[in-house]
Design a protein around this nucleic acid. Structure first.
Lengths: 113, 113
DNA sequence: AAGGAATATTCCTGTCAAGGAATATTAGTG
DNA sequence: CACTAATATTCCTTGACAGGAATATTCCTT
């Protein structure tokens, strides 16, 4: 009954499914950045940048560190680890069953009696 | 100039960002299934199931095999491989830079002259 | 050929989320 | 304290997209 196969955290995926947010994440891969820097490098306006960062933050994908006036955003580990093990769970299972869908076809025939 | 770091395929992520579609994908991890079986196991109606499968198919996440009346859907490899290498690109870089955002803080101060 | 099963497609409607613009907030500086 | 920089928040509008319901399509069986 207990499935040890990881069920992905929806929130992570939907947060990353927005193009600008994905760009932000890929940008932050190279290191922490302030809101202004992110906005600059991606050609976004400040308010929307803040909004996207809020979404990412609410989903635990990034974390903030206040430095005076500025807010420095950096990636968090966990979501990527989860994502990794989720993807891994496919790699394994899919390898095993590679291209022998013949079994399934047989089963189908059996069901038809 | 040439970034060897993989840029994720947006389509994949946005396709997976819908709960029902993610469920379908996780279901298909255990093997190929027909539309009806998927609809049954997930408590979805047939039309919406077909629609979701079309999205997944258009994005190359699943592939179809016609068997008479039925359509058998199975996962494709490639999207998961891409996803894997994308996630990997984070694992590495983030490990390196773990918790030394001090450098960045120095840089910030320098900018302030 | 007729009927039924499995699936796809169309049309409609409501919801939600992203962008724009303006404004609020916080911190540093003279 | 006034001013500015950096960031967050609010309100509004518009577009995309998921679900519902009905219908179309394809294939099998008799």
């Amino acid at each position: 009954m207990s499935r040890k196969i990881p069920g992905m955290n929806m929130m992570t995926l939907s947060a990353l499914s927005e193009p600008n947010r994905l760009n932000i994440v890929e940008l932050l891969r190279d290191g922490p950045l302030t809101v202004g820097e992110i906005a600059d490098q991606l050609g976004l306006k400040q308010p929307q940048t803040s909004k996207h960062l809020k979404v990412l933050s609410d989903n635990g994908i990034v974390e903030v560190q206040a430095e005076a006036n500025r807010r420095i955003y950096k990636l968090r580990f966990e979501p990527f680890q989860e994502l990794d093990s989720w993807v891994q769970s496919f790699q394994h299972v899919m390898q095993e069953r590679f291209d022998n869908l013949d079994n399934y076809l047989k089963e189908l025939q059996d069901k038809d009696k």
